[in-house]
């Protein structure tokens, strides 16, 4: 008998109707863009405008091809700044949703100490329920604030393995 058979054989299902997740979330003040900004800032992130975004492009950055700005002078591990394009954002949590679509890196938002993420203003979901209902089939990561740890005496430290600086450029159409 294989382990698969042994495990499945030891389980007797009691068939029942699926239960739907229906969490009720507290409303937050402001429009979606305002909520996103507030929550992002609480977690150590910051919004930047187009002018500031462009200064980073000239700083020997490393960019994700999807942003249309590729500079591979430095590898993704050595770059100071990584630029990624988010599929969407979540207002109620300040999260950015990055999809690993063909031709993109997973590490561009993770390995460099500064992460810059571009997101379209029209792609901000209200909450997590809408976000999870609209995911693509690619590998996806929700980035919510900077990398952080509180393993040492509960003291919060940013940028332990991932980026300690998170800058977001909300692009208007």
């Amino acid at each position: 008998m294989t382990d698969r058979e042994a495990i499945l054989g030891a389980i007797q299902d009691r068939p029942s109707e699926p239960v739907r997740a229906n969490p009720a979330f507290n409303p937050q003040p402001g429009d979606l863009r305002e909520q996103f900004r507030t929550n992002l800032e609480k977690l150590g992130g910051r919004l930047i405008d187009q002018a500031e975004f462009e200064t980073h492009l000239t700083r020997g950055t490393w960019a994700d091809p999807a942003s249309g700005q590729v500079s591979t002078a430095k590898g993704v591990w050595e770059a100071e700044v990584g630029i990624s394009v988010a599929l969407a954002a979540v207002a109620s949590t300040g999260s950015l949703i990055l999809a690993n679509t063909p031709g993109t890196y997973r590490l561009s938002s993770l390995a460099p100490p500064t992460s810059i993420v571009i997101v379209d203003a029209s792609a901000i979901h209200a909450g997590l329920a809408e976000a999870f209902d609209n995911l693509p089939s690619d590998t996806v990561v929700f980035v919510t604030g900077t990398s952080r740890t509180a393993d040492i005496e509960g003291v919060m430290v940013r940028g332990v393995h991932g980026p300690g600086v998170l800058l977001v450029f909300v692009r208007d159409p």
Partner: peptide, 19 residues
């Protein structure tokens, strides 16, 4: 409210540049 990273892994690299 949410941890810094919530990773949904769909499988091995698929015409991606890493993974």
């Amino acid at each position: 409210t949410v941890t810094s990273y919530t990773h949904l892994i769909s499988g091995p690299r698929n015409n991606n540049l890493d993974g």
